[in-house]
Design a protein around this nucleic acid. Structure first.
Lengths: 240, 240
DNA sequence: TCGATGCTTCGGTTACGATCGAACTATGAA
DNA sequence: TTCATAGTTCGATCGTAACCGAAGCATCGA
């Protein structure tokens, strides 16, 4: 009788405020780093780390190493559904709380991911480059084509220079707000620097979001058009 | 950030092993007394009391006073559904545990409820008495009819004697295993004593179940026949 | 190689809450 | 009224788990 039965274990995992905050931050299927989750939970990185390992052994989270980051995500949509049902239940009991805030839509639109562009615009850029035949995707890997090399050189990217560094030129990076890949690697970094240099965009002071000027935004969208079909629809469905 | 958000509160309520045991004991919609729930949780009555009040203020339980007992039940089927979904989820994560045991089918069949017959047989008895016109049910109240008085006198119940006591003759009592009413009051007590006296049944040593002899069972079932239609079907659906 | 960054592990403190004994209240029966 | 039983409240103890500082790995870029 003393041993906690199944449901108690799950309840206890969800029952800690810090863990609950981290889990709700992960609702919607985006992956977050340990550091981001620590902030979401209002705790230090060390504490978050122990919480995350508990959640992982409890089967609520999965971990995905990516470079020197560790991305955590809900194990599957079963977890999401469970959390959602609990939240729905809580709402009926008057356990209502301060709405979780607008979630910084700017962050979802465009933000810096280590050193390259991420968010809606980051995903769009990679999609567009692939669609244009500038980058070919084989499995997880990305390769710059000759056509792409010419194209990028024309907008001021020193591709041959990038090739000389040890850092991989192209790399796929999981985007947590879109749950799709965006472009990392030295090319991704170079592209973002390029936008900064041209004055199309700048970093926000106190957040990781990237702020485009209206002119820069216009140019960016023109430079990286998007297939009429898939993307927009797909993208809108995520948040709203 | 520090304050526990909605989902954490619910999780914490369910996350305690003792509370989880009590809640699972209440699954299926039966009402239980605080003492019974304390046993289910493997804790003392005091501890159970504090747990129960927490669960009640948390909106998971409702309380129903009945005589000197306090029956607790899940607040509504939303709670049941929530628990069920958590249990289902736990099952998929390998949080499986020792099956909660056969739940003592003997207890569900026939048990003593304070001083009268409860369980499947208790409900059957009252149903049968009402169907035979021995007891009339008006709202929550039960009344012995003249016909019933004659009928019961014939099997050795001193109805006039029972009438002289201050204790109500007939009373409806919520049956947690059947979630329907059974007969309490001095008449309920007298009937059970009558079965004991006749040697139809006896109390179990270490549980609240009532053990019928095969002969006693035959007589009991004959004495309290059951409408062919509703009951059997209804009854079987509960456990299996 | 080195330094910087992201994250984990270790150790010790602290605080919360589960637990129970004991005293108190409420209901029922005689 | 008195006794017995069901349940709550109070007070104190005790364990566990959350928490953070500091040290240790791991990965990346140069």
């Amino acid at each position: 009788m003393k041993e906690g039965p199944d449901v108690a274990q799950i309840g206890a995992l969800i029952g800690d405020p810090a863990r609950a905050n981290m889990l709700t931050a992960l609702m919607g299927g985006r992956a977050l780093t340990a550091t981001e989750l620590a902030a979401a939970g209002g705790i230090t990185l060390q504490t978050a780390s122990t919480h995350l390992s508990k959640l992982e052994t409890g089967g609520l989270l999965v971990q995905r190493k990516q470079g020197r980051h560790r991305y955590f995500a809900l194990a599957d949509d079963g977890v999401g559904k469970l959390l959602e049902s609990i939240m729905g239940f809580a709402a009926t009991r008057g356990h209502l709380r301060h709405r979780p805030g607008p979630k910084e839509p700017a962050l979802r639109k465009a933000r810096i991911c280590y050193d390259h562009l991420a968010g809606d615009y980051g995903v769009r850029m990679l999609d567009s480059l692939i669609a244009a035949g500038a980058i070919s995707a084989v499995g997880d890997g990305l390769n710059l084509t000759e056509r792409g090399e010419a194209q990028l050189s024309s907008i001021g990217i020193d591709v041959t220079g990038l090739r000389s560094t040890r850092r991989p030129l192209c790399r796929s990076c999981l985007d947590w707000s879109e749950r799709r890949a965006h472009l990392a690697g030295s090319l991704g970094k170079a592209l973002l620097s390029n936008f900064f240099d041209k004055g199309w965009a700048r970093r926000s002071e106190n957040s990781r979001s990237i702020l485009f000027t209206s002119e820069g935004e216009r140019r960016f969208l023109a430079l990286f058009p998007v297939d009429a079909l898939a993307t927009d629809k797909e993208r809108d469905g995520v948040d709203a």
